[in-house]
């Protein structure tokens, strides 16, 4: 089965923030929300020396996503199609993992804007635009809309040094597979948060150390999401009904 993934090479990354702005421009993501980000780390002393690096982050499209489990919307059956015409019928809530690409998406039609998935994500990769009358969860889609037109994700297209490498892990000839299989790439995961993120990082030891020390999540945030938050769901539903009427 396919799994789209990204490797970010911190040896090439200069922390220019082009990825963050290209995404904002492509998908009209309003300030201060974001689908991806660059955090500047250091200069700080690490066990491997003085480090100054960056955390270019985005949704990890996890192997075992927790955001999809806290969605209170009633599951519905959907038929998914692969590129080569295979089909698969699975039951999904308003946020789900595509069985053929491994991309985690939001069904904007069915999302009720309760915010459970936003709270559940240990990487804080989702947002709810509270300024809208009718907020919906939003997040990185790995630009599946662009992939359908054979265009790479907007952040990859603009990355000035080619630090973002995108591809399919199931394709052993892809560059992402090669790097991941070489064992040099790390994922931001801990004993507590171990859900198979599909964004990988490579870089100097000191930079990777600083990245891991500062940005690895430890809080199992999805366990704190009141399941299901009846009151919020009700409020969201009432808001929707009021709007239709």
């Amino acid at each position: 089965m396919s799994q789209l993934a990204m490797v970010i090479d911190l040896n090439k990354c200069v922390g220019c923030h082009a990825c963050a702005i290209a995404c904002r421009a492509e998908w009209s993501v309003p300030v201060p929300y974001r689908r991806n980000w660059v955090k500047r780390l250091g200069p700080e002393t690490t066990a491997k020396g003085l480090a100054f690096t960056f955390y270019p982050g985005l949704c990890n499209h996890c192997d075992d996503p927790k955001c999809t489990t806290v969605c209170p919307v009633d599951p519905e059956e959907r038929v998914f199609k692969s590129k080569d015409g295979k089909t698969k019928k699975i039951s999904i809530r308003a946020t789900y993992k595509d069985p053929f690409t491994g991309v985690v998406l939001v069904d904007k039609e069915r999302c009720i804007g309760c915010g459970n998935c936003v709270e559940a994500c240990p990487y804080e990769a989702r947002y709810l635009n509270e300024e809208l009358d009718d907020p919906r969860a939003d997040k990185c889609t790995f630009c599946v809309e662009r992939l359908a037109y054979n265009l790479e994700p907007a952040c990859v297209r603009t990355c000035i040094t080619g630090a973002r490498i995108f591809g399919d892990l199931s394709d052993t000839t892809s560059q992402v597979s090669k790097i991941v299989n070489s064992g040099k790439a790390v994922r931001l995961q801990s004993k507590e948060v171990n859900i198979g993120p599909n964004v990988y990082y490579v870089g100097k030891d000191r930079d990777i150390l600083l990245l891991q020390q500062s940005c690895t999540p430890h809080e199992r945030k999805w366990e704190n999401v009141m399941a299901p938050m009846r009151r919020e769901i009700l409020k969201a539903a009432i808001k929707r009904i009021a709007k239709v009427v």
Binding site: C16, H17, A18, I21, A22, R24, A25, R157, T158, I160
Partner: peptide, 19 residues
Amino acid sequence: EGNPKSPANGTRVCARGNS
């Protein structure tokens, strides 16, 4: 976006160019 035909930057522009 960057001009894909450009030998210098291709499809790439920096954060400011994107803005």
